[in-house]
Simulated assay, not measured.
Amino acid sequence: MLNKVPSLIGLLFLSIVLIGCNGIQGNPTPKDFLTADDADIFLFKDVVYSNSEHVEWVTESDYTRGEEMAEITKQASSAWWFTNGTANKLPVGTRIFYTDSGFVIAIVDEKEIPYVAMIEG
């Protein structure tokens, strides 16, 4: 029986790993978006936010702008260089604000541009 213990532990460990990894998808990454020519995204706290100027529920929402949540610190066109605070189109220095309506607002040249968090699930 003692000879089988290491084999059983190994089999149990393998089973846990396989079961635990099954179905893990996570949130989309910058790489998932940057293949599209019209992608307009930024990354904050490891969550991708996508421009939502043409999303009906966003454009029809009345909202109140809240506290500042982030500022764009760099631009990148490759997912390889994306870190928190990076955008592919928003200029460096763009300030991002929370709203009370489920999206955030970027201020560019006094224009308010809505972005929605791309969260899986």
Rank of each mutant, 00 (worst) to 15 (best):
V17W: 07
W57S: 04
E67R: 07
D37F: 10
G10Y: 05
S7N: 11
I19G: 09
V92F: 10
Q75W: 04
R95P: 02
V92M: 07
E53N: 00
W81V: 09
L14G: 04
S50F: 04
W57V: 02
D40E: 12
L18G: 06
T86N: 01
E120D: 15
A87M: 05
L90W: 06
T59K: 09
L43K: 01
F103W: 08
D40A: 08
V55M: 06
D32L: 07
I113P: 03
I113A: 00
V108L: 03
W57I: 02
I24D: 09
V58C: 01
T59G: 04
D38N: 13
T29A: 02
K4A: 01
E68M: 14
V48D: 00
Y49D: 03
I107Q: 06
D109R: 10
N27A: 14
L8T: 02
G26L: 12
R65I: 13
P91L: 11
E120G: 09
P6K: 00
M1D: 05
V108W: 00
L34C: 01
G26C: 12
G93D: 07
A87I: 02
G10W: 02
K74A: 13
L2V: 11
L2H: 04
M118L: 13
R65S: 12
L11M: 10
S77R: 12
V5I: 14
S50A: 13
I24Q: 07
K31D: 14
E71R: 11
T99V: 12
P28W: 08
P114E: 04
I41L: 02
T94V: 08
W57Q: 01
C21H: 14
T94S: 09
M1H: 07
P91S: 13
N88C: 09
L8C: 08
R65E: 14
Q25N: 14
N51F: 04
L11D: 08
T99K: 02
K89I: 06
L8I: 06
